[in-house]
Each structure stands twice: as C-alpha cells, then as structure tokens.
Design a protein around this nucleic acid. Structure first.
Length: 243
DNA sequence: CAATCGTCCTGCGGGC
DNA sequence: TGCCCGCAGGACGATT
C-alpha cells in the first residue's frame, strides 16, 4: 500500500522526469508530497494532486493496461499513466493546495522529538497504532510501517499513549524516522501492487520484521509473531519483544 | 471531541 | 475442479 516511503519514492523519480515539462500547456514547477498525497505544482500556482490509496500507480512513460484510469501527456511526447485496480485512488486539479494540506498533522519525517511528545500528550487515551496511522495526527504512516515502527520500538500496538514511558516515546519517534528513511532507500514495499514511477517493485518487503509475518518466528527472539484486529485493521507484533 | 463501524472496489486464497 | 465467501486497507462519513 502506498504509504509515505512509496509516495516519496515516486515523487523523487517523477521530479527528475517532469519538472520543466508542460501538461495541458502549463509548465511544471515541482513535485511535492504531503502525507500520502503527491502534488504536481505548475508555475501558474495551480496544482494537480493524486492519492494512490491502496492500489494506485503512477508510471512515467508506462503503457496502458486494463487498470489504466487516465494517461497524462506532456508536451514533449512523454506521458504518465495512472493505474488503479481497486479504483479507490483519485486525482484532482486545484487552484490552491492549502486547504487540503492543513487537514494533515505534521509530517512524520519532519517532526522533532519535543513536538512529538507534545503531540502525544494531547491524546493520552488513544491506542498507539491507530494513532500513528491517523493522518490528522501525524502524516504519512499506514498499516505496514506502523507495525514496523512499533516492532522496532518494543511497544505493543494496543498500548495506550498515557502508559508509554519516556524512553518508549523516544524509541517510537526515532524508529519512525529510521524505518521510513530506510524504506525510502529501498524504494518502498511492494506487498501487493505498488510499483515506483518506473514500474519497478520496491525492495523493502524482505526487510519487514512484523507486517505479514503472522505465524513466523520473531527475527529477534524466535517467538511466534501474532496478528490481532485493531479497529478494522490487522496489527502484527511479537508478544515477547513488544510490551 | 473521540472512537468505532460501514463503505468504496477487485483480485486472490482458503475451504468445501 | 470450481465456486463462493471473506479478506486486504486509506480515508471519509455516520453514528454513538
């Protein structure tokens, strides 16, 4: 599922290819990301924004497939294909992105420890995993990386924020940065249909330590990884390493 | 205000 | 073998 690392991978690659080109006569000034949204800015101040949701793909010079919803053609003959098997994804032309951007909490990669602690204090009763996935709270983390962050931090997904020690909060903050950055380095996780802007799979899947490892042995202590339902989502964790 | 649940959609895998 | 059912999850809206 495209989360922050996947969208960021696509953003970096697309930026290399399309900045300076024209789309519908409008010159592209830059490509940004906010939360899991990809934003193509034009020099006239307007933007074209995308949300890939679960199965969206944006492929530079990709070819039409049965899942292609739209092809964006650039002035030099190159193109960008938007595929989406499940049809949850969307794109939109907007004059301003401000009202969209302000719906999100701080970027997961940008927030400092002090502000992360302040943020957590506002939600003492929330369970940590759903909170990390709440885009209004903190932006960019989804089901895969919340499991990975909490595994690395030794914290169970159901833990209430107010029960977290200072050290646990610091570990969660540090591992959020570490894991997201590592996943970007490997061009994301291709668990299902995710591919990057060149149609290639990401390589972080083999680095996952919790997500989708139910029934397998914990890579740290050999205990069997558990899966529980939290809200309507699945959470994977090691009952021994994570407390 | 916060937490939970249903909803959108389609491919896939388990079970009979 | 083939069919049916349920599951997967981002984010929004309705409900409690």
């Amino acid at each position: 599922m495209p989360e922050l690392p996947e969208v960021e991978t696509i953003r970096r690659q697309l930026s290399q290819e399309i900045v300076g080109r024209k789309l519908n006569g409008k010159k592209i000034a830059g490509v940004r990301r906010r939360a899991k949204i990809l934003i193509i800015d034009f020099i006239d101040g307007s933007s074209l924004i995308f949300h890939l949701k679960l199965t969206g793909q944006l492929i530079f010079n990709g070819e039409r497939s049965s899942y292609t919803r739209r092809i964006f053609k650039f002035d030099d003959g190159s193109q960008m294909v938007f595929n989406d098997m499940r049809k949850f994804g969307w794109w939109k032309e907007v004059k301003k992105t401000k009202s969209i951007e302000e719906n999100f909490g701080p970027e997961a990669l940008d927030i400092n420890l002090k502000n992360f602690k302040i943020l957590l204090r506002k939600r003492p009763n929330a369970k940590i995993k759903p909170l990390l996935m709440d885009q209004k709270f903190i932006a960019g983390i989804g089901n895969i990386y919340s499991d990975e962050i909490l595994f690395a931090s030794g914290v169970q997904p159901i833990r209430q924020v107010k029960t977290l020690s200072e050290k646990e909060v610091e570990r969660i903050w540090r591992n959020t940065k570490k894991i997201l950055q590592e996943a970007i380095k490997y061009h994301g996780t291709s668990e299902r249909s995710y591919v990057d802007a060149y149609g290639r799979k990401g390589n972080y899947l083999s680095h996952l330590k919790a997500y989708q490892r139910e029934g397998k042995k914990c890579l740290r202590c050999r205990t069997t990884i558990k899966r529980i339902k939290l809200g309507s989502r699945s959470a994977h964790f090691c009952p021994k390493c994570q407390r």
